[in-house]
Nucleic acid binder design. Structure first.
Lengths: 174, 174
DNA sequence: GATTTTTTATAGTGACCGCTACAAAAAAAT
DNA sequence: ATTTTTTTGTAGCGGTCACTATAAAAAATC
């Protein structure tokens, strides 16, 4: 998960993944079936843990604006990463990958996350849920990309604060 | 340029690039020196043409808010692309690339573009130019990523309109 | 302790990568 | 028209890719 997160799907080889896990290729394939098989498990583990910032923000309760603002703040705190693991694995892990299977896996995870955001927004603004969800997702994708390009937490937090104000205004009135 | 734009630096091979240009590998290396050499020329051509949406927006004049709003609208119109060339070549062309030379070339082009945005914003808001430029750049990176994930023009235009309102509000008052 | 089953390491599969040596063909110069 | 230079195509360089056949070691069963 860490290697995929740090360098992206294509840039990491099976031999290196095995070395990180302390196993050799045959054991790797016995355990995961394929490189994409491990990627799928990495995506699931990622989405099931603390990296799922929207789920964490949602768990703390509050109205939609509070949840979204908390999500953006968590993104700013998490996306700088450590050991090169910047940005979001789901959003950017298979970006520009030549492997259609990896693309499909990441795409499915993205759709799941985006749908969760949209559904929560729809509880307060059913008519504009799609547009508002797009706003949030574009903000997260942009922050993930900026983090991968080296943006630190301070810069991301400034952006997150502005995006939070934007979302509240857009949610409140047309 | 089109192949790099559509699939990213690593996913395109020299043989395929040569086939697109109607030349064989030896002629390719005689003309461009290396794969990264062609990528550099592609980035320059991209930034020198109509894909440099900020330069186009700036050329039409107006105050900072007008220029930024126009930039975001142009991004929404351009980023869906055609023949798979979605998003921005500079922002996403070397994303997750394993080649440090390609990364450095794209990074330099990004810095150049970001500096241009910051400098223009600084003419009206010198104190908050960095933060406001980050907001714009994150918006563009997010729209580029969303376009690469299949977002169409309509969705991007809705996001661009919201980001335009955000920028005007943030520029106007703290 | 002997036998069977599972797991692992060694080694290598064909395919593709960026890149290039070499020689044939085309162009230019004499 | 002959020679020289440039350009180009053929073929292949070493290297890495995801993946696997085979056989040795370890574990489990009898």
């Amino acid at each position: 998960m860490r290697l995929f997160h740090a360098r992206g799907y294509d840039a990491v080889g099976v031999a290196e993944l095995g070395a990180e896990l302390g196993i050799k290729p045959p054991s790797f394939y016995a355990a995961f079936g394929s490189k994409a098989g491990l990627f799928e498990r990495a995506l699931r583990r990622y989405a099931a843990g603390e990296a799922n910032i929207f789920a964490r923000a949602l768990a703390e309760g509050g109205d939609v604006a509070t949840v979204i603002g908390r999500t953006l703040a968590l993104a700013a705190a998490l996306y700088p990463g450590q050991n090169g693991t910047a940005g979001c694995l789901v959003l950017d892990g298979a970006r520009n990958s030549a492997d259609p299977e990896a693309q499909a896996l990441a795409d499915a995870a993205k759709r799941e996350g985006c749908a969760a955001v949209r559904d929560v927004i729809a509880t307060e603004a059913p008519d504009r849920a799609d547009a508002l969800a797009d706003l949030v997702v574009v903000a997260m994708m942009g922050m993930s990309a900026a983090a991968r390009d080296g943006a630190d937490r301070e810069r991301l937090e400034r952006v997150a604060a502005m995006m939070d104000r934007t979302f509240r205004r857009e949610l409140a009135g047309a």
